[in-house]
């Protein structure tokens, strides 16, 4: 006889059938296979991090590792090389950079360094970059002084945009730089330069330019003679004055002020001595020719 064995029922029980069908639901399977491990890992992390000592220890160890990496010689910057500057600017740059070598390249804040360098008066633009061999290269474009600005007893060299380049000891140090003066003169350096260029025929007589009322220029010549220029189109007014001079030799006469402010009506102001002479001549006879304005 065969031993009486009870064969297992191949049919799944109701519970296993229901569980099987539940497992075949996409949402359930996703939740169990993805969501559950994620939640468990998250919970474990939160439990671990809820202890402040452990958090501090982890921060400490992370800092140690960061320090170790930061201090490696491969990342050390050992020298500063400056291009495009010399003399006093070079020392000023070194002073502003304020670096004690060797320094890790992770500690360098190059944008801040560039900002500090560009805050220097003689520096027009600067760029800083790290080169191989631990070199911090700073490339600088210097401002070029084009005018000397007299104000309140000091002489300031300024570039074409009116920005201060350096403070000079006295006017003699300015050399060939054109002189400008008056309040607000630094805001119209470009115009001053154009006027200086236009005034080239008067080069020997030219003393400088004075800004009047922060709006217009006076051209000051030797013997304190002045050409008053209008606010609008001063260069053309100066050209007209020079043409007048070329035609009638106006400025060589005894004239204190040539007023070109009104376009259609140039005015000559005689010096006191000339005025006396004029009065005297007028008293003398009508045939006497007098200096007169020309059209």
């Amino acid at each position: 006889m065969d031993p009486v064995t009870r064969r297992a029922d191949p049919a799944p029980s109701v519970l296993s059938y229901r569980l099987n069908r539940l497992w075949l639901r996409r949402g359930i399977r996703l939740a169990v296979l993805r969501g559950l491990p994620l939640a468990a890992a998250l919970a474990a992390g939160l439990v671990w991090a809820s202890d402040p000592d452990r958090r501090a220890a982890m921060t400490q160890s992370a800092q140690t590792v960061a320090e170790a990496i930061r201090g490696r010689p491969e990342f050390a910057v050992t020298q500063l090389r400056v291009e495009g500057a010399d003399g006093s600017l070079r020392t000023a740059i070194a002073q502003v950079a304020d670096l004690r070598f060797p320094v890790s390249r992770f500690d360098l804040d190059l944008p801040a360094l560039v900002a500090r360098l560009e805050a220097l008066d003689p520096v027009h633009s600067a760029e800083a970059m790290l080169r191989t061999g631990g070199v911090l290269l700073v490339r600088v474009a210097e401002r070029r002084a084009v005018v000397a600005h007299l104000e309140a007893g000091t002489v300031t060299a300024r570039d074409a945009t009116g920005h201060r380049v350096a403070t000079l000891d006295d006017v003699a140090k300015a050399g060939a730089l054109p002189l400008i003066a008056g309040p607000g003169a630094q805001d119209a350096v470009g115009q001053a330069l154009a006027l200086t260029r236009a005034a080239a025929p008067l080069e020997d007589d030219l003393v400088g330019l004075v800004r009047v009322g922060k709006r217009r220029w006076d051209l000051v010549l030797s013997d304190d003679r002045r050409i008053l220029l209008p606010e609008a189109a001063p260069v053309q007014a100066l050209d007209r004055a020079l043409a007048m001079h070329a035609a009638k030799d106006v400025l060589s006469r005894d004239v204190a002020v040539l007023d070109m402010r009104l376009r259609g009506r140039p005015v000559l102001r005689l010096s006191a001595r000339a005025l006396d002479e004029l009065h005297r001549l007028r008293a003398g006879g009508p045939e006497t020719q007098i200096a007169e304005t020309t059209r």
Binding site: P10, N20, L24, R25
Partner: peptide, 18 residues
Amino acid sequence: ERAIRTVVQAAQKMAGLR
């Protein structure tokens, strides 16, 4: 019911969906 459960579960397993 058992027979239906058997075939449905087996077919679902083969199909991989419910």
